[in-house]
Design a binder for these strands. Structure first.
Lengths: 330, 330
DNA sequence: GGGCCCAGGTAAATCGTCTTACCCAGGGCG
DNA sequence: CGCCCTGGGTAAGACGATTTACCTGGGCCC
């Protein structure tokens, strides 16, 4: 900046005034000289120094729980990043393992770097023991909830998702279901199961005729449970899967058994991974709005309105595709 | 810091000396007083100010090309992040679209924020027109190469990957292949095809008996091409797939045709997505070492040795699993 | 006792920017 | 002619650290 001033024969103050758009008091001629010097010297302001002076870094700390290595949920990062960019902010990212010590260290480092907000995202919805933070720093959890319940969080509405999955099938006229659920003790599973039960009730169906089989969210268990489900008599007409991976397992099992989708059985997934649209037939599934969750998080974090969030549940809509259709004989 | 000094009845200088470990000249008693004051006031140094003074931000700029939203390749970010963390550095992340203007803006913003290195990662290996950067700033491309060839880059050795896929099958005794390749004009496809041809030659096989079918890297084309491949007589004993997604398509097609893997036909994928290990049977595939690529990139970027990299090719090893076996009758 | 050294600390400059308070020369006005 | 205002700029603090150069008092040695 001093160089620019020298080149344009003005003071540093003048250069700053011109550059910061406060040229109310600077003559056009001087302004032009300064801008020319800036151009000639290829000067660019040092944002670290600006930040120090202004007391703002335009930076959001983003701590993840190995999330980025997980398929599809990098969308949270994308959503955060998009909003941040719109507001001249950037994401300072740390990939912290489950390890609480590392989480604490990461959070402290980010605080020391004067981030203006802190967002934590977990892979599977889970409880987390979040470290202490300064009272004036906006903190937000995505896909996780604080052990002590003091921190605002954004979670997918898994219960509603489970319910819309089954309601979609009910609307098509289905009456016999099996729910191929994921790990029994996972929070997401419990919620999805709850939605499933709600859905059955809405349809006036008995739980005993529409059982829940538990697996582990992986392809293999989708395969195994699908085989088991199709052995029931009368056969189910719709398999609701705990996630898209299990739906893939079901696809393979059904292909091998010669059962056609959706003519003989409809399949509904959960997650709307990119792969869902590419399967053949394309997979009807429930979308978890990760990208939007990231956007909402960043918006509130930067606006300093995280306290308005409370325990926000994001709606998980059904995405109808080719794997569901009216049951035969309707 | 001034507060701490006051509390401990010493100067700011002394506090700084104690905290930075330069206590060579500070008495134990004073040191203890200072540390106590630090504790009492819960003082933490401002890294923005430190950075300004020291002229170092301990920050790597990481620009992605929508990569994070792509399954499995978030591993690049994880690798970068891991090394950065080991060296007290953090990642400043921007998700920039293909759009060159946005890329330029992102790079300039990162430069203004005084990042100590710049890493760009692309989704599919591709050419990129990277903006001008200051000469002393380490810049590195992952999974991309600079249009003008001036920027060091780290790419997977796709050719070797293709070759090891077929060599693996040759070792098992296979002699009739079909390569279900991806998009014909993609760089990665061309390289993998080259490796495939090398492999055929090594095995003494004729290209005319072992054709290449081109698809689009999606499940649907894997399905279609697998059907087409199995219509050949004599039947191929191994299908090499352009990526794991196409292999999934092949799995479904073969299941529907009643062809068993690996008894009747072996399948080899490419990418080693998480899904590969979960398929049933688990999928033999070629691993792209994204995590390691991230690690190498961060290591050289932080050490300032990017120029040693040149055009580095990372080895892509075969990961043998259950989808490949000796052909029948051997 | 004087000179020197050393341990233990501190004052002040610096990093690059913003911002408040001030300065100065003209011009209008009474 | 003196006063005040105003347009156009500048000097001089911050912001929160680090680091160099200096200061001071006491002990040691001759």
């Amino acid at each position: 900046m001093a160089d620019v001033g020298r080149q344009a024969s003005v003071s540093i103050t003048t250069v700053s005034l011109v550059l910061s758009g406060q040229h109310s008091r600077i003559s056009e001629a001087t302004k032009a000289r300064v801008l020319k010097a800036v151009e000639d010297l290829n000067y660019r302001p040092n944002k670290a120094a600006q930040g120090l002076r202004l007391g703002q870094t335009r930076t959001i700390g983003f701590v993840t729980d190995e999330i980025l290595t997980q398929p599809f949920s990098g969308n949270i990062a994308a959503g955060l990043s998009a909003v941040a960019w719109e507001q001249q902010s950037l994401l300072l990212t740390v990939n912290a393992t489950m390890n609480t010590g590392r989480l604490r260290a990461a959070v402290e480092d980010l605080i020391d770097r004067q981030v203006e907000a802190l967002v934590f995202a977990a892979m599977g919805s889970r409880e987390v023991d979040f470290p202490e933070t300064p009272p004036n720093l906006p903190v937000l959890l995505i896909n996780a909830y604080d052990r002590r319940g003091r921190i605002p969080s954004i979670m997918p509405n898994e219960e509603e998702g489970g319910r819309s999955a089954i309601e979609h099938a009910l609307d098509l006229g289905h009456e016999r279901f099996v729910f191929l659920a994921g790990r029994e003790n996972a929070w997401a599973t419990k919620m999805r199961v709850r939605g499933y039960r709600d859905g059955l009730e809405i349809g006036g169906l008995r739980p005993v005729d529409n059982p829940i089989f538990y697996g582990d969210y992986r392809i293999g268990s989708g395969y195994d449970l699908a085989v088991r489900a199709m052995q029931r008599r009368p056969r189910p007409t719709t398999l609701l899967c705990g996630n898209d991976q299990m739906a893939i397992g079901a696809y393979i099992a059904l292909a091998r058994m010669g059962v056609r989708i959706p003519e003989q059985v409809s399949i509904v997934g959960y997650d709307d991974e990119p792969i869902a649209a590419d399967l053949s037939p394309s997979l009807t599934t429930v979308r978890i709005p990760f990208y939007e969750m990231g956007r909402v998080a960043a918006t509130h974090a930067l606006a300093g309105t995280v306290s308005e969030i409370g325990q926000m549940l994001m709606s998980c809509p059904i995405v109808p595709r080719a794997s569901t259709n009216r049951p035969l004989g309707q």
